[in-house]
Amino acid sequence: MKASYTDTTLRVTFDGDLLSTNIDTLRTEILAAMAQYPAAQTIVADLTHSRLVDSKGVNLLIALYRETQNRKLGFRAENPTPDVRRLLSLLKLTERFGLTA
């Protein structure tokens, strides 16, 4: 996972899929990035390289969304593949995650 910070926006870009087998690592890395950039006002989850997101991966995104809500930060997901966007749409998460048509 890569983290970059620009103009109060923390962008976390996942290197690959969000799966049951890697979400623990990703969760730790995201929390570390948020601690590194405490002034961030918005968190962006960049899904460009995530072709598959399983239910635990979705749970990670939901957890990240909740965490931003608790900290009164903005959150959005960006660049999902068509399959991941469809999944998030079926789970009625696109609006919450700031994914507009």
Binding site: D54, S55, V58, N59, L87, L90, L91
Partner: peptide
């Protein structure tokens, strides 16, 4: 519930 929801959806 989310896993089942994913499967039901797809």
């Amino acid at each position: 519930s989310l896993g089942i929801q994913v499967m039901r959806s797809l």
